[in-house]
Amino acid sequence: MKHLEKKAADMTVKELASYIDYSVLKPEFTEEEIIALTKDGAELGCATICINPGYMELCAPYVEGTDTMLCPVCDFPFGTSSTASKVQQIEQVAKYDTVKEVDIVANFGEIRSGNWDKVLEDIKACVKAARRYGREIKVIFETDALNEEQIRRMCQVCMEAGADFVKTSTGFLTGHEAHGATPEVIAIMQEECGDKCKVKGSGCIRTRGHFLQLIDMGIDRMGVGYRSVPVVLGLDKAAPSADSY
């Protein structure tokens, strides 16, 4: 949890952008769209650009020499691949010098099944793979599919596994109501993690008020979709569309 010296409303655009992992994850994006959005995130000074692993070489040139780095998201959005497959994905992307962190999706079906030992071993292997390249790792829970007890337990599991961040959502969950990074869920994760693990909120962060509120709560990072980035930064007053990440 970040300990702030000033309120979010008093921060500059660049300071606010440093909280953002700019989401460029939609599978229908063309290469031209991915390049344009990567450039935009880098120009704004976002912490990272979240991309699918297949676009590492495409995006890398557009963050080199900037304060922005890449954050590939592995086994996205379901988290249901084998541990060996997840580890291989991490190793393929973590070797790039332009990578700051790697995001992974926990197997939330296994979480819902109560298979905690299996979930722990899976995340431990992913953390170990990221560490081989000196990268931090974020673990997505898909909190809209979980109850409070499961969310709290997963925070403990991630800390035991050595993860650097716990994270709420993929933004791609179906069959459940989308709430994403609500202040209530973020508060639960912060309470469980304290200063032992950082918290990333993602999903449904579409208004400036919500964005600033989470910063003032001490959140460490936020995943924000490309349509919502200018809104939360105060650069565009237009309401984002309903399909924003």
Rank of each mutant, 00 (worst) to 15 (best):
L44E: 01
A9G: 02
S228T: 10
F165Y: 15
V229Q: 03
D216V: 02
V105F: 08
T168M: 08
N147F: 06
I35F: 09
C126R: 09
P61A: 00
A9Q: 10
G54M: 01
N115R: 09
Y55S: 03
R135T: 02
D97Q: 12
I104Q: 13
Q213A: 14
M69A: 11
V229T: 07
E121G: 04
M222Q: 07
G45C: 00
S228H: 07
G201K: 03
A84P: 01
V166S: 15
T170H: 06
I49V: 10
D216L: 14
L173H: 14
F108E: 07
P240F: 06
V13W: 05
V73H: 06
P61W: 00
I205P: 11
C59K: 01
I215P: 01
A129W: 13
F211I: 03
T38M: 06
L173E: 15
I35L: 10
I215M: 06
K26W: 13
K138D: 04
L214C: 09
G65S: 01
P61K: 02
V99R: 00
C50S: 15
A163M: 15
I90Y: 10
S169H: 12
G171I: 08
A8W: 10
Y19A: 00
S18V: 02
T168V: 12
A17C: 03
K86M: 15
M154P: 04
M189D: 06
C74Y: 06
C74L: 10
N147Q: 03
T83N: 06
A84E: 13
C197P: 10
A8F: 14
D21C: 01
V105Y: 11
E32S: 11
I123F: 07
K200H: 07
E32A: 10
A161N: 11
K26P: 04
E28T: 11
V185Y: 11
A187R: 13
T83C: 08
R152D: 07
V139K: 14
E121S: 05
G65K: 00
G79M: 08
L235K: 08
F108H: 15
R208D: 09
G223P: 01
K124H: 04
D97W: 09
Y62F: 10
G234T: 01
T68F: 02
D67C: 01
D236H: 00
V73Q: 05
I137R: 05
N52H: 07
V185T: 14
D236Q: 04
V199W: 07
M11G: 05
K200G: 05
T170Y: 08
M217E: 15
T207P: 01
E177V: 12
M159T: 04
D40M: 06
P61E: 00
K118P: 01
I49Q: 04
S85V: 15
D10G: 03
K7N: 11
A238E: 11
A94P: 01
T207Q: 14
A8V: 10
E160L: 13
D117R: 10
R227H: 08
G194S: 06
L120S: 07
G201F: 11
D164Y: 14
I186N: 04
M217A: 11
E28H: 14
K39M: 12
C126G: 11
L70W: 13
E91Y: 04
E121T: 05
S113D: 15
K86F: 09
A239F: 07
E136K: 12
K39L: 13
V63T: 03
K95A: 05
R227P: 06
E160P: 02
V105D: 09
A178P: 05
I215K: 09
D75P: 05
E101D: 12
V13S: 02
V63Q: 00
R132M: 15
M217G: 03
A84T: 10
H3N: 12
